[in-house]
């Protein structure tokens, strides 16, 4: 049997990035997002991605205090996802799109805020995360420690590397591996088209 959480509980749980609340949100909200997408030129995978991005936007929103809901969280989340999908469709296909609301409630007013990540940024972050997760565990750990500003000497001890120089070299190679993976990912095309060419591989 699944627990029922109030909107306030869900917001508090998401604010702490609590896994059980995120699970609950997925089970409750994902079907709505998927339904919306399947009826609006989207696929199941688009639904997964949109739910992912919508939750990131919601997470960013609830970090700013005070956060006040003027409708149910479900309606609010659905509005975020619809807005994102609208932007994505416009960017991808340049189509005119009219949203319909499947949630049997009044549609929520949704205005993109300045600190919201852009739709394109969300997609880029997803691309980075996907490729980061494909790196060897040791590389991921090394990059994490480096980003935590742990001194090279400490990293060498933690990962049992022979010295700092090796840590540095390894860090470069891991970073390079990640960069190459990202650039080779077909989804990366849209982000680098203004910055270079993919011909040289």
């Amino acid at each position: 049997m699944m627990f029922q959480y109030s909107d306030e509980d869900l917001i508090a749980g998401l604010r702490q990035r609590n896994s059980s609340y995120i699970d609950f949100l997925y089970q409750e909200f994902f079907p709505i997002v998927r339904h919306h997408l399947l009826h609006n030129s989207g696929t199941h995978q688009d639904g997964e991605d949109l739910f992912h991005d919508g939750l990131i936007v919601l997470y960013n929103r609830i970090q700013t205090e005070p956060f006040k809901l003027e409708c149910s969280l479900k309606t609010y989340f659905t509005a975020i996802c619809k807005n994102l999908w609208l932007q994505r469709l416009e960017r991808r296909y340049k189509l005119i799109y009219h949203a319909e609301c499947e949630v049997q409630e009044e549609p929520a007013e949704y205005v993109t805020e300045d600190h919201d990540p852009t739709e394109q940024n969300l997609e880029q972050q997803r691309l980075f995360h996907k490729n980061l997760m494909q790196l060897p565990v040791e590389c991921r750990r090394l990059l994490q420690l480096y980003c935590l500003k742990i001194p090279y000497r400490e990293i060498a001890k933690l990962l049992k590397y022979k010295d700092e120089v090796y840590v540095k070299t390894r860090k470069y190679s891991c970073k390079k591996m990640l960069r190459k993976k990202i650039i080779k990912d077909p989804e990366c095309d849209q982000f680098i088209k203004h910055h270079g060419s993919r011909n040289v591989r």
């Binding site: 970073k175 650039i183 990366c188 982000f191 910055h195 270079g196 011909n199």
Partner: peptide, 16 residues
Amino acid sequence: PLLRSEVYIDACLNRF
């Protein structure tokens, strides 16, 4: 251009 792309991706990656 490829180097340019890599530099751009790397900058975004650092933030991520």
